[in-house]
Design a protein around this nucleic acid. Sequence first.
DNA 1: CTGAAAGCGCTAACAA
DNA 2: TTGTTAGCGCTTTCAG
Lengths: 348, 348
Amino acid sequence: MEESDGPGPSRRPTLRQVAAHAGVGFKTVARVVNGEGSVAPATAARVQAALRELNYVPDDFAGSLKKDGGRTRTIGLTISNVANPLAAQIHGGVEIVAMPRNVATFAVSLNEQPSAEIEHTRAFLRRRVDGLILTPVADDQSYLQLAIDRGTAVVFVDREPAGLRADTVKVDDVSSAATAVGHLADFGHRRIAHLGDRVRIQTARQRKEGYLSAMRSRDLPVDERLVILDIPDELHAYAAARRLLESDDPPTAIHSAQNLITVGVIRALRDLGLSRKVAVVGFDDVAMGDLLDPPVTVISHDLARVGRVAAERLFARIDGDQSEPRTVFVPTELVVRGSGEIRPQLVS
Amino acid sequence: MEESDGPGPSRRPTLRQVAAHAGVGFKTVARVVNGEGSVAPATAARVQAALRELNYVPDDFAGSLKKDGGRTRTIGLTISNVANPLAAQIHGGVEIVAMPRNVATFAVSLNEQPSAEIEHTRAFLRRRVDGLILTPVADDQSYLQLAIDRGTAVVFVDREPAGLRADTVKVDDVSSAATAVGHLADFGHRRIAHLGDRVRIQTARQRKEGYLSAMRSRDLPVDERLVILDIPDELHAYAAARRLLESDDPPTAIHSAQNLITVGVIRALRDLGLSRKVAVVGFDDVAMGDLLDPPVTVISHDLARVGRVAAERLFARIDGDQSEPRTVFVPTELVVRGSGEIRPQLVS
DNA sequence: CTGAAAGCGCTAACAA
DNA sequence: TTGTTAGCGCTTTCAG
């Protein structure tokens, strides 16, 4: 199917065309392009001239077809959403490691849809990526074993995979959440609510674990009514927080286990005039958290570092590392700003 | 170079291997894989079985080598920074359009470095991307003419290219900035400061234009001391704002022409106790802007939409659109929240 | 309905 | 120092 075109797009010249233009064999041109040496200066000059004149642009993929190991210098990255400021930090971290290696990164959003994980992973594999950095969202990642056996490196970020042993880089959600809740308990709170993300998300489950373990280890009673799970977004978080705070026996402190939930909680507190009465510690840092009133205390984690470490492990694997898969925990930090240091008060 | 390996990675099977396994010609397998029909049901079944058994995964790039037009179903995207929440929105918008087309997106950060633009664009071209969505940061984009002539679609976002006519999707920075400044003037301000981003950035220059034109059209004197340019980050913005506000003849209002600058300004105002005394209108929305005190008035723009529109134009080009290049302006909105509606006050 | 031959742009042997 | 011959995994073309 030819276009009806007038000028028509001129195709890019091939190695052979450059060779013809320079009056040499095409292998010689390849030598010059790849700087392989063993080319007479005079010849090289002629080739260089032809290269410029024809504006030769090499085709990297054509090369990788035959090349040693067939590496494409390409990796695939799946994250929650490329436009999500938190998830995008992972992307930024990966990029910092990939860029200097001249490895290009395919990035794609999963939006927590298991089918998207399968689909995009397969699309990446069809494009022969050298490696995959994945945020697992499906229930099982064993389908990747085959790809790994065939030489594609795989590293997981943020959550551990199921049905598969592979490198993972994440934060310790359980202990970090426990730290957050313990902090509230240290300030005298006994009725601490936990608002969590969708339970299909592993980190949401782990953060709830942390909450429970902190409560238990301090012999605080866990009131089921104060544990609200499966909150999908900020609006639902707002509603849940209001319901809680306006109930007969409200909590004196809230552990909100995800950044959007924290925002919803803050809004609810503000609308109810309780910002300075009910303590809040959030998991995930919140934008402008230090400029809010009161400034919000959070468990902060360096997601860019998660991305960096994951990319480093990935390239180690690509470069032949055969060691046992391991899980690397990136540290978190309790950032004390004010909202988490409010003491229990009698709420009218 | 073979690895010394024991088990060694099993390569993925090729079309021919599947064919051998099924006892058919490899072209028949290709027909089944591509659903080309004209294959006897019985044969197709045998092939399907072989496909599953060997876990065949097609190689998309090998195909694109010869295929019609040689499309790789791949595009390249360059933005300010993939981890920058604002720029990441562009990425999100692009993805929304690219994903359903089964087109994978390479994303990369430029960090305002001209050399990075050249380098990564070339890397994308070597990978034979079908199209490029670029945030221009170099002084001249004419080097891309050749790629366009050779059939690579190119669309610019956020800023217009130089030395090249091509589709561009951006907001009208000049008029939007003028709106922001006009809004402040409407509230009685005469001494309005302008704090702008690095002047090498086109939008920074255009926003300053908008500031100047709004001032002039209202016959307000432009005090050079109130125009601070080339602010590279939040810290410098903070320092600049403090200097301004602590000067002998401070402004009564501030037009801060970029989101990080706005944050710096807000911090300075807060630290000086002037949050409710000096008006602020920011360009770019600010995270949690409505939860700050006072809530911050901004020029908000839908960057995701910029990405979507750009991707739509790109695919139109890829699909053969030959129309004249055009610039599409995506609308902005003045979001009135409080900080921009403070009237001029005598600052001690 | 099926298959064999040619070739995409390159790299990898192996000659000359 | 050079060039030739293969062939990567696929699509295209053309025969059976």
